[in-house]
Design a protein around this nucleic acid. Structure first.
Lengths: 335, 335
DNA sequence: CTGTTAGCGCGTTCAC
DNA sequence: GTGAACGCGCTAACAG
């Protein structure tokens, strides 16, 4: 079937293309009766305007991009949910891109978005991003950018995060209150502010309770899961193995479970574990894991909201929002 | 910063717009030296072609849409991963749309895609879709459509699924082998083939082992979680409560966990549970849940692959692929 | 090999 | 109130 366009409608109605266009856009110039006729035929023929012609003309794509490191992760999944709901409300379309924690891919993707494909970008940085020239480029092109969750302090733009420092502090404090003496911290990329802030919370909590900070209990994990696995195994095989672990991300907590299973270590009796996690279902199924849970859905919504504000006002805003995360204790668990 | 376009490049190089265009597209007509000059300036100025102008001209969007009922679901999450990887390989962009199991939204979304926004669509039906006029419309417009996972037998198009019948049979058989006598089945929408086929497997397995099929053990769940919760609670509060449950989707299994926790029923001692599930991490954390796991990533990849074949060949193919799912038993569990 | 011309489908002047 | 004409940025057909 031939796709129906303005010309087609105009011919059938004995009107000019521009009149039809105006009628469809509800212009005040057009006679009510004409509008009615146009709208009638349009809906009868299932007319849909060609989005790209319109984008080209209006220099507006009605599309945003979401760039995230991975999707098999409950936080991002919930955030997308929030983002999509706001986008749909604004009549916007959502493009999704995965970097797989690869900085080069992140650069590539942002390059694809340089020329009008999107009106704005929501982004969570990949863990090995250190240089931000690709983002400067977006800035120059006046494409609004909002960071969420994984932000960098080295690049100024609007951002939506959780209270990472406070959460890290509380998580550590919780382990201390459970009687842990040797608390390890599994951290990800030191470039990301979530890594830095959560760790600072850990450090300050230890200080507060006068527990010596031991560098050998801080495990700097990588973006390679198998490497992390080995690091965690080494940690748990030491004779003075930690009695508490604070994992900065869910994935590392899962790794702990795997290692503990292999080493026949009981969680939470022999090792207490606490982690950032949004895996609601897993947390439910697994009563021994106390989690720090972020309001991922709301974070997505807020980030989208800020982005649309920026798009509307045509100003790159430096708005920033911080959400509280919650420490969720599971019933019938020592931890 | 002004966005740089072909005209800009042409002026700076003292060439015509079309020559520049050809050079950038590596046309054989263009002199090597000219190409070099063009490419040099283009990269110096970070030239990126306007995708919508090109789409308009070529009538190709280099974009596909993925329409799914929800995203907070490990199956879809993994499938998107697979889809995105193939799309990226083909230089395609991925639009994502969530129907939230709402048929009307499904219709709305497909309408938005009628006029060239995408070159093809990947779709998992919402559970209450019964009418397919909106899909016929896509068909007429020659937009390739590939179903994955949630397909309908009432609409003919390419599809990628798992061996739902066989999986349902095996799941039920597994419970029988564990000694279950009263096996309940929690099913979703009867419109979807996954619902029908998994249930048929259940029925046939019972027959095979000469266990009477009891209609009161088949719980037809809805798309309203709170209703399902009540239904499951009623099921488990009966004096002749089931000793085994086969949940057709993960979400319903989670509901079972919640209800059992509330009723102080032990899983798997008092009630054995088996479910379709792709929640790898949960399955790991929860050794008492045996799962039927689908190769979601590969299903996504295959669906995308078929779609790109259709786009390339400009033929709407009726290719269909069936993947095996795996029954994954957890260690140290009676079920 | 390079340039000229003519749209892709739409929205916005500016005449009438 | 309506229509003719132009251009968004790019590509393709056709000249030269």
């Amino acid at each position: 079937m031939k796709t129906v366009n303005l010309k087609e409608l105009a011919e059938q109605l004995n009107l000019s293309v521009s009149t039809v266009s105006k009628a469809l856009n509800d212009s005040y110039e057009i006679n009510f009766e004409t509008k009615r006729r146009v709208l009638e035929l349009a809906s009868a023929l299932h007319y849909q305007p060609n989005p790209y012609a319109s984008s080209l003309r209006k220099q507006k794509s009605k599309t945003i991009a979401v760039i995230i490191p991975e999707i098999a992760n409950n936080f991002f999944t919930l955030a997308i949910n929030g983002i999509e709901s706001i986008a749909q409300k604004h009549g916007y379309h959502v493009l999704i891109y995965l970097t797989h924690e690869d900085y080069n891919k992140e650069v590539e993707i942002t390059q694809l978005l340089q020329n009008g494909r999107v009106d704005g970008i929501l982004m969570s940085l990949s863990s090995n991003s250190t240089d931000y020239a690709h983002l400067q480029e977006l800035n120059k092109k006046m494409i609004p950018l909002v960071f969420f969750d994984r932000v960098s302090d080295d690049f100024a733009t609007a951002r939506v995060t959780t209270d990472d420092y406070e959460s890290g502090y509380k998580a550590t404090e919780h382990l201390i209150e459970q009687g842990c003496k040797r608390i390890a911290h599994l951290t990800i990329s030191k470039n990301l502010s979530i890594g830095k802030k959560r760790m600072q919370g850990y450090i300050d909590a230890l200080n507060k309770y006068q527990i010596p900070l031991r560098d050998d209990l801080i495990v700097r994990c990588t973006d390679d899961a198998s490497v992390n696995y080995v690091l965690i195994k080494q940690l748990l095989q030491r004779k003075d193995r930690p009695d508490g672990i604070f994992a900065s991300v869910e994935k590392l907590a899962i790794n702990c479970y795997q290692v503990c299973a292999e080493l026949d270590l009981n969680i939470p009796k022999e090792v207490k574990l606490i982690s950032f996690s949004n895996l609601e279902t897993a947390a439910f199924l697994c009563p021994s894991l106390t989690t720090i849970t972020q309001p991922a859905f709301d974070i997505g919504k807020e980030a989208a909201y800020i982005l649309f504000e920026a798009i509307k006002s045509k100003k790159i805003q430096n708005h920033s929002a911080v959400f509280k995360s919650a420490l969720i204790k599971r019933k019938s668990t020592g931890c």
